[in-house]
Design a protein around this nucleic acid. Structure first.
Lengths: 217, 217
DNA sequence: CTCCTTTTGTTGTAATTACAACATACTTGT
DNA sequence: ACAAGTATGTTGTAATTACAACAAAAGGAG
């Protein structure tokens, strides 16, 4: 009995439909010891993984020996699903066991095989994948847009403007504290604080903690 | 007779299946005059557009009056498909007619309606959307990864490392000239040239025009 | 080959940022 | 209310970058 039934990948699917998925996508469970390599940059993969137990890290290791940890993937979360869909895309990151863990792998195979099937479970599954992918898209393009400007000021204004659009108001709370906002915008925290102060002195914005107001006049 | 049959959205679909799509997604054609607003930031949309004639620009206009043009969308290309899929996501950009143009709109409605249909045309269509979305994801996360480092040097090395992984070799051509690479990495061109020279003098890489070699020893 | 255009490399300067160190304000638990 | 810990703001300095102006190299047309 797997504990994967409540993953968003299987959203709105009956237990029977999920069983179909597990069978048809030839799911297999595998265990990894801490620090063991699960997927390696440079490879391609037809499988994506769902974490049943433990956690994995997504990291980048270049040939000059620099390591960057990009993210952690924990319980019931998944990884490499984009690469599994696009079978020819080479992985640009390593996936490594952050601790002893159990991974459930799904073999998507080529999309083509799924296309010709017109079963309901497959339709639901693909719709879920599409929703997940679209969501990731919004997050990624948002961030990409916010860190494109070269100055801290422009990054701040770009970010605040989009939040304002999302909240339909020039006054709103943001979900970050200063350090998190700095990390999100890829700038130094103190430099961020400094620029926020300037923007307030110049009357462009007004803020207190994570509450912001945009002053356009 | 629309000229949309060869868009990647309808890849591997028969003419009959495409007709189904056009009907079921209640496609409607609409004309816009140059500079007319097609979709506005802050709104949500259930429709996405396919350009039949002319072209549109995706732009960002903040409340302080700054305008940034993000991209052009030309013939047979489409826009806002991600937002149409996620009906609650507010548009963060404006879409405006770059010249007089004809747009074919598709009403995706909620994904839920499509999920319960298990017709082959729908399956194919969604698979195509998924492939497009996954691809966009790879492009976006790649770029996001490359412009995250704060120094030019790190951005260059990050980029070269991924190309090396994709080409399965430490020697390869890149598809950019200096100006394009600078734009892609969001840095100044001359600063980029300068840093490339340094990297060569230090024996980290060797390059001539758009041919690169990574020297790891 | 020569002229012209485009691309790429180099250098100096001004602006911006990261970083460190510290001051102030805010939280939390007792 | 107090103390300890955390978050935020401030300042100065060193490092990095953008920008501009120019030099050198490469490519193309006649």
């Amino acid at each position: 009995m797997k504990n994967c039934y409540h993953s968003v990948i299987f959203k709105d699917m009956t237990q029977e439909e999920i069983e179909f998925c597990l069978t048809e996508l030839r799911s297999t469970e595998k265990r990894y010891k801490k620090d063991e390599m699960i997927l390696m940059a440079g490879d391609t993969t037809e499988r994506f993984g769902l974490v049943l137990e433990g956690s994995v890290t997504i990291e980048s290791n270049d040939i000059w020996g620099n390591r960057t940890i990009l993210s952690h993937v924990g319980n019931k979360q998944f990884f490499a699903e984009t690469y599994a869909l696009l079978e020819d895309e080479t992985l640009l990151v390593d996936v490594r066991a952050n601790e002893n863990c159990r991974i459930l792998f799904f073999r998507i195979g080529s999309l083509k095989r799924l296309r010709s099937s017109n079963e309901l479970w497959a339709m639901k599954f693909i719709c879920n994948m599409l929703e997940i992918s679209a969501h990731k898209n919004v997050v990624l393009s948002g961030r990409s847009f916010h860190i494109s400007p070269r100055t801290i000021r422009e990054r701040i204004l770009s970010y605040l403007n989009t939040v304002s659009l999302q909240k339909h108001s020039t006054e709103f709370d943001i979900p970050f504290d200063r350090q998190q906002l700095a990390d999100y915008l890829n700038v130094d925290r103190s430099a961020l604080s400094n620029e926020l102060s300037k923007l307030q002195r110049e009357g462009v914005i007004s803020c207190r903690k994570n509450h912001f107001e945009l002053l356009s006049h």
